[in-house]
Design a protein around this nucleic acid. Structure first.
Lengths: 338, 338
DNA sequence: CAAAACAGAACAATCGTTTGTTCTGTTAGA
DNA sequence: TCTAACAGAACAAACGATTGTTCTGTTTTG
């Protein structure tokens, strides 16, 4: 029943040729080492017959390359990162690479452990959306000479290449959009303060509030979760004077908002407007289609991969810190008020 | 800048001990090979100092084990599989395993290639939700002695262990639920006919139609996609006599239904009822919360992993083909009609 | 015709571990 | 005092590939 996998030695035994010759033929180095056509044919034929597939583990040990990229995200169940993972996996597939995946569960400790695991597996490169405040473990990996690119989340103070959304611009645009629609009492519900994108968004938002001379705004919240959106919205609704618009910093937070608003029988956008970061196919089908600031997920992935491969190939990077502008997708959750 | 990773030889050089001794200490086999306490201390200390992490690739080559599990799904961007992936990744993490992920993109050819890649990497086990009609490539992997478990989708005719939803029961219950709410014209929109779950669901549905003496039903559609749901719903709405209820076989299909219904200004459930397979956090927030047949994703993952580890540990399996009952989550998309 | 040149393939070291076996002292027993 | 027993550690062969080097004939050249 259990047919053992065949290896290069099996081919050697069957053909009577040495393993080195076989290896060379199979790696297309026949010309270079002047191996005869006839020998090549034999090798290919027998390899085929034996259903030979090179043992990558052995190959990797010798070559120091694994044709493997690791992807570390804070939460695979978050559609945003799931999409990233899908993209990356499919993109890497095309180049013969395979993807190791790790969900750090927004836990820096786990992230550290997984990173160690991954490094010990000699991956050729790492794509990571780190979840913590400190990047020392990441920087150590980089100083080990392992190509690494951050995406979405990053460390502004470290010299680690990253690709992310221009969150300042996005948040500014979002804030302006609200203000220009007449909103003067705006509540922002943010995510994790440990996350650079969150901080940048907050700054962008606050900057516009200042520019526009709006003082009646709040920034609350602490996590990129439905629960956080729900809780913070409930708190907002307890206030005597309610905000006219909520600016949510993630799709998950927005869901929480919707839930809370529904419980209070408040309509979007008639009673309160809602603008959120992150796009998702579902947004079109919600009770009220949400106007959202769509991050260029595709481009972020593609560029992150491109940078990573540049590092792997030891090419010079012209830029290694990239910010891409998001796009505001207008739906129906923001009302014009006078 | 680039500090090289240290290996067991470096420790050997620093301590003056042989690599075998160091390996034994580090693997907790000191007692067994009577290595003195003092020597152990030295080894641990130096290993720590050198920031030593064993090279898994070398270890794997020697041991034939990689502490790696591969997960192959038809589409990571489908929330259903993304959730699976998140679950699996986190679950495996706990046992020191790491997850290789592959998105076959509903393409059997890609699935084959990825499978080859994965096998060549000596993974310890494979979890797969196969996307094709034929399981020969899967069976070949199994006959290679590589532990493999199918989940969600499987091959009923092959002796490959699987864990899935009791789709017959789920579809029957769903169908009964509709009939008992007075529906007599029911349109079923199915997904891929290549998928066993789809076929089983269809049979469950048709069985109930027969039992209940309902002849005015249809089964159409061909893909688990939004587009398919959209198209098929549009077609249904062209008919002179429209169905009173639509039974969608996936969350993606349901989204397509909603889109089409919206375009026709039809309300759910007043004008037409909608029942769907798959649950998702978003379903609660849709314009009308969808009543759904929730697959026990968590349990499927846990059991699939359990089976896989049984295979890995060469334990006897009492059962290796498991079907778990889904749960109908009542929301508001199905109307009672008289 | 001897030596050089070359074609064609084998040899052997290596990657970083693990592990069965062997080696070297010291201690205990007779 | 001699040997057996044992503690403590080193040796060396794998695992399956890759690759610089060497080997063996045959052909070409002067």
């Amino acid at each position: 029943m259990s047919v053992k996998k065949s290896n290069i030695k099996d081919i050697s035994k069957v053909t009577g040729l040495s393993v080195s010759t076989i290896s060379r033929v199979l790696n297309g180095k026949a010309k270079q080492y002047r191996i005869s056509e006839k020998t090549q044919e034999i090798v290919f034929k027998v390899a085929e017959e034996l259903d030979y597939v090179p043992n990558q583990v052995a190959r990797n040990l010798k070559l120091g390359k694994t044709k493997t990229i690791a992807l570390i995200v804070p939460s695979l169940s978050n559609p945003f990162f799931a999409n990233m993972a899908a993209q990356v996996s499919i993109e890497l597939q095309k180049t013969g690479y395979i993807t190791l995946i790790s969900d750090s569960n927004e836990n820096e400790e786990i992230e550290r452990e997984e990173l160690t695991q991954i490094v010990s597996r000699n991956v050729d490169g790492i794509l990571i959306s780190p979840c913590g405040n400190y990047g020392d473990h990441i920087d150590r990996v980089r100083s080990l000479g392992i190509p690494l690119v951050c995406f979405d989340r990053y460390y502004a103070n470290l010299e680690i290449p990253y690709v992310s959304t221009d969150n300042f611009w996005g948040a500014s645009e979002g804030a302006r959009y609200l203000v220009e629609h007449g909103h003067k009492r705006i509540a922002c519900i943010q995510g994790s303060k440990q996350s650079v994108p969150n901080e940048v968004r907050r700054k962008g938002f606050e900057e516009v509030m200042k520019q526009k001379g709006i003082s009646d705004f709040t920034v609350t919240g602490s996590e990129f979760t439905v629960q956080n959106g729900y809780t913070e919205t409930l708190l907002l609704l307890q206030k005597l004077v309610k905000p006219t618009a909520i600016f949510s910093f993630s799709n998950t937070i927005a869901l929480g908002c919707i839930k809370a608003l529904k419980e209070f029988d408040l309509r979007i956008p008639e009673d309160i407007s809602l603008l959120t970061f992150d796009n998702h196919p579902y947004l079109d089908y919600l009770s009220v289609p949400l106007t959202s600031i769509a991050q260029p997920v595709n481009d972020i992935c593609k560029i992150a991969i491109k940078l990573l491969f540049s590092l792997i190939n030891k090419e010079e990077l012209s830029t290694n810190q990239v910010l891409l502008r998001p796009k505001i997708i207008l739906r129906k959750s923001v009302n014009s008020i006078s």
